[in-house]
Write a protein that binds this DNA or RNA. Structure first.
Lengths: 63, 63
DNA sequence: TCATAATGTAAAATACACTTTACCATAGTA
DNA sequence: TACTATGGTAAAGTGTATTTTACATTATGA
């Protein structure tokens, strides 16, 4: 799975910490997702799409 | 998270086992998702949307 | 009625998602 | 120089997703 978190974050000038707080997760979770260490759970993926006001498919893609 | 797996499956006349095999997961995984015991991983959610030829948002929803 | 298909469920094991704490590197700024 | 912000990473712990095996229940069909 690929994701566009870093770009979407940059477009909004958000730090990893900003995003983490908006999602109520730790900064390490954001970092791990961005650096491809693991994929978020489905509920977290929904939250991520919501804060970026787009669909899950806009953020994540099947490799 | 809610999901429409059971309905989508019924529309196609697929058993839980049919779907499990199409996704290369166990039948128990399909059953557990349908009965709300847990949510699929994000990669599996993508696979599910793909076999039903729709988006993740068409299959799953928050709440 | 009997046999079988489909579904629900449970326990133990493994893999993965996520947290907390903590440290290191880099870049920018006082 | 020293300080601060940002990002990368690591270890240990907790919780969840998924597998395998196995058994029970319900529906269906011969």
């Amino acid at each position: 799975m690929k994701n566009r978190l870093k770009v979407l974050r940059a477009e909004r000038n958000w730090t990893q910490n900003d995003l983490a707080q908006a999602l109520s997760v730790s900064r390490q979770t954001i970092n791990a997702i961005e650096t491809g260490k693991f994929d978020p759970s489905l509920p977290l993926a929904f939250k991520i799409a919501k804060v970026f006001q787009c669909t899950i498919e806009d953020v994540f893609s099947d490799d």
